[in-house]
Simulated scan of single mutants.
Amino acid sequence: MAGLNVSIAFFFFTVSLCEMIRKLSKRIFPPKVYICLASELMSAFQLCACYLELKMLREIGPWGGGFGPDVSLTLLFLLFLIHGASFDGASANPSISLQEFLALDSSFGATVTKVLAQFIGMEAASTFTKQYWSRELTDFHMIQNLMAQDCSSSLYTSVSHGIFVEATCSFFFQLVILRFQASSSMYRITIVALTVTALAHAAAPLTGAFFNPALAFAVTFSCSGNSLLEYMQVYWLAPITGMLIAFFMYQGNIPRIFQKNLLYSIKNKYRIPKGKVNPSASTSIKERWIKTERTISCSERTE
């Protein structure tokens, strides 16, 4: 139980440190620099550091501390509630940043900056967490240090099955993100945390349930057991493919590539009233409707 308390203290310290740096960065940097660089960097650091500590508890806890998967899943749910509340609009996930680029919500330069910040933040968190483990504050950390000297791959199934699992997880995760992006923050954060917990429960024994290319790169790419090409197929290609399928199914098109909606027909909001009207009046009414539609659509874009 002492090991679990130390891990909870580590979670609290990491989140507090990242939140403090976020607030300081928001005062120092211009909004664009903060959104694309500082916020993504600290959110990626927070996500990876907490994931590594939680992964250690999930792997060592059952036989080293006597607590089962219910503890790690509960902590995962609570952590994603905290992540959702503290990330300040950052995604810490290259797949989400790419989806925003394809939706015309982010420029190419901003997307590249976000992705680079995410990878750098994850790598920094990996180094930071390993240094923290080297202090061996608990027996868990001592065991983890021995295991880390020759880490093994998080892929516990075949490459083809791993591709399917990661793509499926990414598909459902991205679909939930898109479906509830306009909902209230409290409702959206809770749904996302529940989704991540359910996906982790189902897929963690097979692939680690990353569905995040930067997180997988920092955690498992340096471990033995699979080649770099196999890692890229499972943890990079599969999540991006799942994101593309979810985005296309939700949107009906990919605005950055093509505008035509292939799945859903857009119905006119305004119906022409039935009945006989003289041609001049009909033309005038149609012109007013077209003008009203254009005005509303412009106001929706500016909002």
Rank of each mutant, 00 (worst) to 15 (best):
residue 263 L to M: 01
residue 52 L to Q: 05
residue 193 A to P: 13
residue 208 G to C: 06
residue 289 W to N: 00
residue 279 P to H: 04
residue 117 A to E: 02
residue 146 L to F: 05
residue 151 C to A: 13
residue 164 F to T: 13
residue 52 L to D: 14
residue 58 R to P: 05
residue 257 I to D: 00
residue 110 A to C: 12
residue 21 I to W: 04
residue 168 T to M: 11
residue 198 A to V: 11
residue 249 M to E: 07
residue 131 Q to R: 10
residue 122 M to I: 08
residue 103 A to K: 08
residue 54 L to E: 01
residue 27 R to M: 11
residue 96 I to L: 04
residue 247 F to M: 10
residue 59 E to K: 15
residue 287 E to F: 02
residue 125 A to L: 12
residue 111 T to M: 15
residue 248 F to D: 02
residue 204 A to N: 04
residue 11 F to Y: 15
residue 132 Y to I: 07
residue 74 T to M: 03
residue 59 E to M: 08
residue 36 C to K: 09
residue 78 L to C: 09
residue 61 G to T: 06
residue 299 S to N: 08
residue 130 K to N: 14
residue 109 G to S: 10
residue 30 P to H: 11
residue 111 T to Y: 00
residue 123 E to K: 05
residue 283 T to Y: 15
residue 42 M to N: 04
residue 302 T to H: 08
residue 255 P to S: 06
residue 70 D to E: 13
residue 56 M to T: 02
residue 192 V to L: 11
residue 300 E to K: 03
residue 238 A to I: 07
residue 303 E to V: 09
residue 55 K to C: 06
residue 38 A to Y: 05
residue 59 E to A: 12
residue 6 V to K: 11
residue 182 A to L: 08
residue 118 Q to F: 01
residue 176 V to R: 13
residue 187 Y to C: 08
residue 60 I to C: 02
residue 47 L to F: 09
residue 300 E to V: 04
residue 163 I to W: 09
residue 263 L to P: 00
residue 198 A to W: 10
residue 241 T to E: 06
residue 86 S to H: 05
residue 278 N to A: 06
residue 272 I to A: 00
residue 123 E to N: 05
residue 171 F to C: 07
residue 187 Y to H: 12
residue 258 F to V: 03
residue 6 V to I: 14
residue 284 S to T: 09
residue 259 Q to D: 14
residue 212 N to D: 14
residue 35 I to H: 04
residue 236 W to V: 12
residue 255 P to N: 01
residue 265 S to C: 06
residue 115 V to K: 02
residue 59 E to W: 03
residue 193 A to G: 15
residue 60 I to S: 00
residue 149 Q to F: 13
residue 40 E to V: 02
residue 242 G to D: 15
residue 275 G to R: 03
residue 279 P to C: 02
residue 5 N to I: 14
residue 61 G to I: 02
residue 245 I to R: 03
residue 15 V to D: 10
residue 252 G to W: 05
residue 19 E to L: 11
residue 28 I to L: 15
residue 292 T to E: 06
residue 172 F to L: 04
residue 201 H to M: 12
residue 1 M to D: 10
residue 9 A to P: 10
residue 278 N to P: 10
residue 268 N to Y: 02
residue 118 Q to D: 07
residue 121 G to F: 05
residue 226 N to D: 06
residue 207 T to W: 03
residue 284 S to L: 09
residue 226 N to K: 09
residue 92 A to I: 03
residue 107 S to N: 10
residue 179 R to L: 12
residue 281 A to R: 06
residue 118 Q to E: 07
residue 160 S to W: 12
residue 83 H to F: 10
residue 273 P to S: 08
residue 102 L to R: 00
residue 150 D to G: 15
residue 212 N to P: 10
residue 152 S to L: 11
residue 62 P to W: 01
residue 171 F to Y: 14
residue 233 Q to M: 14
